[in-house]
Design a protein around this nucleic acid. Structure first.
Lengths: 271, 271
DNA sequence: CAGTGGTCTAGACCACGGA
DNA sequence: CCGTGGTCTAGACCACTGG
């Protein structure tokens, strides 16, 4: 039944032993998970396909629904399948690959650096409609950011917090931090102002950016990020911290949170 | 008992309603998970601390052990707590931060690029003992790598696959791919050979690297990586793909898999 | 409205690691 | 040894969604 999977009986009723020791080799739910994972990887269950219902799987493998759920939960946490939505069931998750590619380019002679925040540019080039929610506030720096910006932890920072969307669906989160003392009485504080980039503005104030430091890490999203960016179970985020320096000091900190099923980072560099 | 947590009764016996509709607002296991998550974040449960036992939590919240397990499972999948090991119980996971920092530096005038694979250097600087298992083989390129190296998918590649360790514990996985036709009859094929870097060797063969393209993405590890690198539940990996170019063509592909609880990437770049 | 997955219970046995 | 978490069962009711 279920046609496939002729290999071996997944559970030979009773494993020779009279009755005891149920799972000496590998727990049943992992056997089920391994089986489904293999079927997904060899494209027998292609992206977008329906995963068999929990009831069917329980019948197929001769175990309870809870055991099947443990297997499916493992696969969901690996990002391979979606959570179920009632009658729609679960589906094999599509690897939509990178919707957006951050990029740093540098021409050989010129030492010129493009990006990374040509978000609107790249979106338009892909024929997608970019939008964003902006929110500006003033906060205390805190130990993390204070270290990077080389200021006291209680100094005030202007935060520009943006949730960006492509065609209405959340793309990523981007926060920029500026020491208040550097930018007070400028448009940076105006949330309605569409500043294409704050960098030239800082340059005009005498804080021209001459170098960057990028830190890149990965982790599971917290519940707030899950809600804000509509992140599925088992999908990690990439966190990208860019500290911008003038000749004298750090002047800018950008924090980007990218759901890893929609984004990748890209750097192009001379050797 | 349990001492802490005087805030509110987490579950007022029966929520006013006579009996029905169990979880209209939020499922119990999420309430429990949120509570524990908050206690971890405010350091009431600091890194390394014992998480209360499942039985205790069930008693505290007045629910079954299975419900508690759903909450703990969610926290484990967020990378916040460890899985339990029998009598040792579960602990709040330590954020050991980056053990190793990959780095790309470039001096302003010179356009010189250091790293990223001064792994041994950086390890020694940190007083850690680096070791590695090397395995060399020859494989067909496959569509993914063929595209990046601009060769037919059936062309042969030499693979140098390294699992690297710090003080005996797995650090990360690093694979380098070279078109066989570029490197045949060289030491690259010798697994015992400690080639500090293959780059100068390629340069001597007329394939001097002049630029890189780095692609960085994140995902959950597959079971093989979990075993090889001893990755905990809920810890994503960073995958780093570097394509090295000579003046004419791609000559080298490096794939690095980094458990995100031990690593971060870092770039230092001119503006 | 029928059937899916989500939530939850109250049990059970087992492997394993500290005391 | 004893208690932990890991595995598993056989039920139950509910919310949501597609036909």
């Amino acid at each position: 039944m279920a046609a496939v999977n002729g290999e071996q009986p997944q559970r030979p009723d009773q494993p020779a032993r009279s009755e005891p020791s149920p799972y000496h080799d590998q727990p049943q739910y992992q056997v089920i998970a391994n089986d489904l994972r293999a079927r997904i990887q060899r494209r027998e269950l292609p992206p977008g396909a329906q995963v068999p219902t929990e009831k069917d799987l329980a019948a197929t493998y001769g175990c309870s629904r809870n055991t099947v759920r443990m297997a499916l939960s493992a696969l969901a946490n690996e990002g391979l399948i979606s959570a179920g939505r009632a009658r729609a069931g679960r589906t094999v998750r599509r690897r939509e690959q990178f919707v957006l590619t951050h990029r740093v380019e540098e021409e050989l002679g010129a030492t010129r650096l493009r990006g990374p925040d040509s978000f609107a540019d790249q979106a338009h080039r892909l024929g997608r409609a970019p939008t964003q929610d902006i929110e500006v506030s003033i906060v205390a720096a805190g130990p993390e950011y204070a270290t990077r910006l080389e200021i006291p932890a209680d100094e005030r920072l202007v935060v520009r917090r943006r949730v960006r969307y492509l065609d209405g669906t959340p793309s990523h989160l981007s926060e920029s931090y500026y020491p208040l003392m550097l930018v007070k009485d400028t448009q940076v504080l105006d949330p309605t102002e569409i500043v294409p980039s704050v960098v030239p503005l800082l340059a005009a104030l005498g804080h021209r950016q001459v170098r960057y430091t990028d830190e890149i890490l990965s982790r599971m999203p917290d519940p707030a990020e899950v809600r804000l960016l509509e992140i599925g179970v088992g999908v990690p985020v990439i966190e990208h911290l860019r500290t911008g320096w003038s000749a004298e000091r750090p002047v800018r900190l950008t924090r980007t949170v990218l759901p890893s099923d929609r984004h990748q980072l890209r750097y192009e560099l001379p050797s």
